[in-house]
Amino acid sequence: MNIFRFLGDASHFAAIIILVLKIWKTRSCAGLSGRSQIAFAIVFTTRYVDLLTSYVSLYNSLAKIIFIFSSYATLYLIYFRFKATYDGNHDTFRLEFLLVPCALLALIVNHRFQVVELLWTFSIYLESVAILPQLFLISKTGEAETITSHYLFSLGSYRGLYILNWIYRYYVQNYYDLIAISAGVLQTLLYCDFFYLYITRVIKGKAFALPA
């Protein structure tokens, strides 16, 4: 565990806490894409089936359990507990446009044609684009609550920090995984536009709104 990965994981945990806090404190999931959250639940479920087959560390197992549990808890909050506040009319991105290509790509580009490995590969590809329904929702409404923008900033930073971790591991441990790296770079690139607006608006105390 190097400093970049630690900060990346911390950022990921922070994102999840901010998300749950936003829903709980405002008693509302307005502005959140349930479809992105469904995608994240699928990502964690398919990636962490290895909880049953391989043990890395207590930290690793606990983190996996927390990610899986929190993703389903978030779905419960959006689709059941605070369903009345869910912005379903604007959350219209078709998830199958992400699921199908990611599944096909995982079947074609993978390290080994084996169930657990294919599920891991699929989850890596899906995670890289899972935020698209959320960004699509914001582009439709043209705005995001400040706390939602903090959530997105944390979530976007996490994979960006993982890229630094991969660079570090390449040089120090001669370890690299091209599938994780290319998907991670794409994932981070998708946030760039958001990062720009976050830094130029939210940090300066303004509301997050798309330029007219």
Partner: peptide, 10 residues
């Protein structure tokens, strides 16, 4: 593709 390594990342 190269052999998969142990997946120690999240």
């Amino acid at each position: 593709c190269k052999e998969p390594q142990i997946k120690d990342e999240l």
